[in-house]
Simulated assay, not measured.
Amino acid sequence: MVIRKLFKFEGAHIVRNCSSHRCRENIHGHSYIVEVFITSDKLDRGYMVMDFVLLDKVKELVDSFDHTYSLWQEESDELKTFVYKYNRRVAEIPVSPSAEGYALLFLYLIDKILQNTEHKNGEGNVQLSSVRVHETATGYAEAFREDLKLVNFNVHNIRFSEAIREEWKNDQWWEGIKIKDKN
């Protein structure tokens, strides 16, 4: 069985090395929709794959990108200095912030979150199936579980500015993922 949870964020970026001059040469933004698809081989005692309330850390993760500049870590030092000088909310990420980059990044991070989520209601083998990121009303990218093989980064390559972290209820979920990612 599959469940789907939808999240939204408004974000800005530059997508370097793409075909479009507008995208690769200009800061611009989108109203993103992030769909998370989760499967299980059985239903819990409430006849659910899992209770959506257990996705609170996923909501916090996606919200970390809301009204945030997504800064590709390969950008020039000059642009990085500018972005950090004039923006409080910055997510420095190891992938180009295209829809495909976001889909892979979210797939990786949400999978880590689900691996660190405690299930106490008889849930089955709960797994992240895919993450779909809509960049526009007409286009999206979807990363599937098998696409985790495309990941050539880890959680330590992702940096959230202090302004983002200050808004988290607590950062134990993030620190827990980082600790387990060392192993």
Score class of each variant (00 low, 15 high):
14 I>K: 09
16 R>V: 10
16 R>T: 07
17 N>D: 14
18 C>P: 04
19 S>I: 07
19 S>G: 13
20 S>V: 10
20 S>M: 11
21 H>V: 12
23 C>D: 10
23 C>R: 08
23 C>V: 11
23 C>G: 07
24 R>F: 09
25 E>A: 15
25 E>N: 15
28 H>T: 12
29 G>N: 06
29 G>K: 04
30 H>C: 12
30 H>Q: 09
32 Y>P: 06
33 I>C: 09
33 I>W: 03
33 I>G: 10
34 V>I: 14
34 V>A: 09
35 E>W: 02
35 E>A: 14
35 E>K: 01
36 V>K: 00
38 I>Y: 00
38 I>G: 03
39 T>Y: 00
40 S>A: 15
41 D>S: 04
42 K>H: 08
42 K>Q: 12
43 L>F: 12
44 D>P: 03
44 D>G: 01
45 R>K: 15
45 R>S: 13
45 R>C: 14
46 G>A: 13
46 G>I: 05
47 Y>T: 15
50 M>W: 01
50 M>P: 04
51 D>V: 13
51 D>R: 01
52 F>M: 07
56 D>F: 02
57 K>N: 15
57 K>I: 03
57 K>V: 02
60 E>V: 03
60 E>F: 00
60 E>M: 09
61 L>H: 07
61 L>G: 10
61 L>T: 08
61 L>W: 08
63 D>S: 15
63 D>G: 10
65 F>C: 09
65 F>Q: 02
66 D>P: 05
66 D>H: 14
66 D>W: 08
66 D>E: 11
67 H>K: 09
69 Y>E: 05
71 L>E: 09
72 W>P: 05
72 W>G: 03
72 W>Y: 15
73 Q>V: 12
73 Q>C: 14
76 S>M: 06
76 S>R: 10
76 S>W: 10
78 E>Y: 11
79 L>P: 02
79 L>F: 13
80 K>A: 14
82 F>R: 12
82 F>M: 13
83 V>W: 05
84 Y>L: 11
84 Y>W: 13
84 Y>M: 09
84 Y>T: 08
85 K>D: 13
86 Y>F: 15
87 N>F: 15
88 R>Y: 09
90 V>L: 14
91 A>P: 07
91 A>L: 12
92 E>W: 10
92 E>Y: 08
94 P>A: 05
94 P>S: 06
94 P>I: 12
95 V>D: 01
96 S>Q: 07
97 P>R: 03
97 P>H: 05
100 E>P: 02
102 Y>R: 06
104 L>Y: 06
104 L>E: 05
104 L>R: 02
105 L>I: 11
105 L>E: 06
105 L>S: 10
107 L>V: 07
109 L>Y: 05
110 I>Q: 00
110 I>A: 00
110 I>N: 00
110 I>W: 01
110 I>Y: 03
112 K>S: 06
113 I>C: 00
117 T>C: 04
117 T>E: 09
118 E>H: 07
118 E>N: 08
118 E>G: 04
118 E>T: 13
120 K>Q: 04
122 G>H: 06
122 G>I: 13
122 G>N: 09
123 E>Q: 00
123 E>P: 00
124 G>M: 02
127 Q>P: 02
131 V>P: 08
131 V>W: 06
